[in-house]
């Protein structure tokens, strides 16, 4: 009789531990690296914690200088598949004053990183225009990493009527 009791208790304990372990190890949230590996071909919902992590990764503990980035996006867009976007970085493109990298992020996309542009002092005007996709109406953020360690940030809200399934 006592043996049966002990065995049942043991089984219960094992079940409990396994349940807790499952919850902590696989919470249905797949790990996403920044450079979207090729295997991850399933529908993923946007994750605000992940976007915050990416932004913190870029900025770190550097100071943000104002009026460095000009961003031109229409306020309302009919089709989320084609959102025209142009940005300009206000600097003299000399050898010591040019943007090394410019990140374009669409927050609330499943993969918030849209594009990274690298500039050199040879292009005399740090202006780029292209088209991007947006799933829902959300912010578009541009982060510019300058050559001398400064950082510029600009945010703008875009209203999307028909979202893209990106």
């Amino acid at each position: 009789m006592e043996k049966l009791k002990r065995n049942t208790l043991k089984k219960l304990l094992v079940l409990l531990v396994s349940c807790i372990g499952k919850v902590s190890y696989s919470n249905g949230n797949p790990y996403r690296d920044r450079f979207q590996s090729y295997r991850q071909t399933f529908r993923i919902e946007p994750n605000p914690i992940e976007t915050e992590r990416i932004i913190n990764n870029i900025i770190g503990e550097k100071k943000i200088t104002k009026n460095l980035v000009d961003l031109q996006v229409p306020d309302t867009v009919e089709d989320g598949n084609v959102v025209p976007l142009t940005f300009k970085i206000n600097c003299s493109m000399k050898k010591d004053d040019y943007p090394k990298k410019v990140h374009v992020l669409a927050l609330e996309n499943p993969f918030p990183e849209v594009a990274i542009y690298e500039f050199f002092p040879e292009n005399g005007n740090a202006e780029v225009s292209f088209r991007c996709r947006m799933r829902t109406s959300s912010f578009i953020m541009i982060i510019a990493e300058m050559n001398d360690g400064r950082i510029g940030k600009e945010k703008k809200y875009v209203d999307v009527m028909l979202g893209a399934c990106s």
Binding site: Q36, V82, V104, F111, E113, A115, E118, R133, M134, A164
Partner: peptide, 8 residues
């Protein structure tokens, strides 16, 4: 330019 899946 390095592009990800967000480009049209």
């Amino acid at each position: 330019a390095n592009w990800f899946s967000g480009v049209s």
